[in-house]
Design a protein around this nucleic acid. Structure first.
Lengths: 211, 211
DNA sequence: TTCCGGCCGTGACATTTGTCAGGGGCCCGT
DNA sequence: ACGGGCCCCTGACAAATGTCACGGCCGGAA
């Protein structure tokens, strides 16, 4: 039934690095049953471009300007439900997978999987199957969901830049004491011993994505 | 003189992400005058593999396990002076370019340059020319070399993890006061307002590479 | 309804961090 | 031989950070 005479699968590529975007296009174009119909470099260009070109499958990077790949996946699923989404990311952050699936992604692949498996992943996703890196799936279940409250995550996100408590308080329109309380809670929940370590741990676990 | 009848340029690819490595191979293999003869995923595999396969040009990523791309470039130049080196990196950190050139690289390309330019860069490097992203070159000259002393950079590197002063002192076999002094100096030189910000600034400028 | 948990704020407190002023040792260039 | 830079350490101090106990405001669950 998956005969080679079928119409090729139409692909949209989204990655902020033009070089890897073009390289992925070259790689996938080697497959006779795949054709790249669109390339974008920003998350907020995904939906408009998909409306124009009507791809069957969209490959989305997570780290992108404008809109991260998870949010772009959700927007794309809402706008064009027929289009499957395969998230391709650099980092195997446990939380990324969870967020991607909640956002409606059909597959999740990390960038250090062998190149030959990518085309298969695309075909599987197009066929309606779910594609997930098995080791990552196990890790995700082990790590569990974020223990951080929405506010705590927001403060940690703001703290990534390395500003002082006064900076954060100003940026978030909060009192300094409140900021310190949230930070203290986050430090406790992450098991960290100071702000910087808490940021690092939360980031590694993918707990800093939400809006 | 650059006739198409010449023997193809032999390439070695080094990138820790198998997917982009394979994709780059696909992209470059589209060019009739280029052929990929080796692929490695770690910096310390570059020289052994180059000895085996004798490439004309090596494309090295900077972020790699084992040995970073800059150090791999230096080792490769020392071991096989005939092999040209083109450094390909994700981040346009100003200091990376400087370090790469000091290490003997013949070209420097960031990953968000258009894909079609990569093959040209390879040909230029192979022809003995230097290839440098012009905007990045200007930025490098403006930013200048690292103002940090070797010790200060070392302390900042250790501080990336987010540990306390006591942790750093233990890891580096220094007194806590000394660590604080180095951190203070680094904070001053970077213009930061605390340790985390100093780490971020130094990292962005590529001042944290050395051994 | 009452409770509970998240959220915001206060104030006080101990600890950590950042700064400054010293002093001694080493190596290198003059 | 001298100066100058970097390194290592000490000690002391001010400022920032982290912790704790407290209370009030909400919205949802029991």
């Amino acid at each position: 039934m998956t005969g080679p005479a079928n119409a090729p699968i139409r692909l949209l590529l989204a990655d902020d690095q033009a070089l890897v975007r073009g390289a992925l296009a070259a790689l996938l174009s080697l497959e006779p049953d795949l054709t790249v119909v669109a390339e974008v470099g920003r998350g907020d260009e995904v939906v408009p471009e998909a409306r124009r070109t009507r791809p069957d499958v969209a490959l989305l990077d997570v780290e992108m300007p404008g809109l991260d790949g998870i949010a772009a996946a959700a927007a794309l699923r809402a706008a064009l439900p027929a289009c499957r989404v395969l998230v391709v990311t650099t980092f195997g952050r446990p939380g990324y997978l969870r967020r991607a699936m909640e956002a409606g992604a059909n597959g999740f692949v990390v960038k250090d999987t062998p190149a030959r498996q990518l085309a298969d992943a695309v075909r599987r996703v197009h066929a309606g199957l779910r594609v997930v890196d098995p080791t990552l799936a196990a890790e995700t279940l082990a790590t569990g969901a974020s223990p951080l409250t929405e506010r705590e995550a927001e403060v940690l996100r703001a703290a990534r830049g390395g500003g002082t408590v006064a900076d954060l308080a100003g940026a978030l329109h909060l009192s300094e004491g409140t900021v310190r309380n949230h930070l203290s809670a986050a430090i406790g929940k992450t098991g960290a011993r100071n702000r910087a370590e808490a940021v690092r741990i939360a980031e590694q676990n993918g707990w800093l994505l939400g809006e």
